[in-house]
Amino acid sequence: MSTKQGRMGWLFASPYLIYAFVFFLIPLVWSLFLSVTDWNLISPTFSFVGMENYMEAFKSPGVQSAFWVTFKFMAVFVPMVVASSIIVALIVQGLPRFKGLFLIGFFLPYLASGVVSSLIVKGLLSYNSPVNEFLRNSLGLDINWLGSPFSALFVVAVIIAWKFTGYYALILTSGFESIGTEIYEAAMIDGVTPWQRFWKITFPLLYPALFTVLILSIGVTFGIFTEVYQLTGGGPNFATNTWQMEIFTRAFSNLQAGYASAVAIIASVVTFISIFIIRKLLEMWGKRNGWN
């Protein structure tokens, strides 16, 4: 009986074993191998170059920009999406009825393909668009949105924040639900101002849900590709050159498969360490304030 059950267990788990072997272990080893070659993705021959790809990568503007661009995205995108999702969650939470209906509505942007949202934004920001006409004629502002480094990064961050706001708001509302109304009533009697109420009561109780949102949104910044690929191609002058963009360009446009593999390995090490450190810092921050 128990050997039979054991066999059934392995049988049921076998899809994962096959998958992990073919699409994780083999690629992992292959990637390490490629990173020390000069293979160009097509040619039948290649030679070993040792650590040369890594040396070149550390010095290249592409890799250096990808490193910094990720953190710049984080600095712009994370506060933006956290603020917008808190606002949405607070507003929905204040409604006695149709809460679910509104949450579904706010979730809809999450369904958009990055290609579609990029297309819409490109249209909204084109030279003769209603937005730019308005800015030019009423405020005298002539902004080349995707042409200057900061605004290009900002635009991409807004598109992605738009997509995730409703999803994160949904996570935050479940956090709100755990806060009882009694505590607010008690605070009201004590004469607490709304500002104090938010920071002293809502925020600490919301922290576990907020922690989830922070971790998820930080993870997003390490995987940005579609919007950048569609709108800026990583430019202007590497201002939006994310890791995925750099690896894609090097491997599949420049056909530097060996070099791009080295970049991919650097990218994953940087990603892993960054997320680990940020997570630890967030946990410490929460503990010090007694939120979790």
Partner: peptide, 20 residues
């Protein structure tokens, strides 16, 4: 192993998965 793979940055797999 599943937990390990989940937190492993998948970007490293893009090129070799294409080759597979």
């Amino acid at each position: 192993f599943i937990l390990f793979q989940m937190f492993f940055p998948a970007i490293i797999l893009l090129i070799p998965t294409f080759l597979v």
